[in-house]
Amino acid sequence: MDIQLKRGILEVCVLKALQRQDSYGYQIIKDLSPSVELSESTLYPILRRMEGAGCVTEYSVEHSGRLRKYYHLTPSGQERILDFLKEWDEVVKAYDFIRGKNNEEA
């Protein structure tokens, strides 16, 4: 898949993983792993970018004698997920048209 497209899709996947509840790095990777292949090297830039864009905030919680960093989805982040879904509907419509769903016209 084109790398730009992939990056955009991965970003929204990460946001989605935070939709139900706040989560931390490794947990996000585990949650996404059945559907999406993700590693820390990809995840960190995404979280950083999303935080810069105001879609995600972070906070630390003490856990087993260290600080575990949690990420939280903001209303902006929620909007981002919805925008993606709206855009994707258009892509699907275009795809159907190009593919020629009404094959009898051909």
Partner: peptide, 10 residues
């Protein structure tokens, strides 16, 4: 911190 955490989690 992020990567140290990631290693600790694993």
């Amino acid at each position: 911190g992020f990567y140290a955490n990631a290693i600790d989690e694993r």
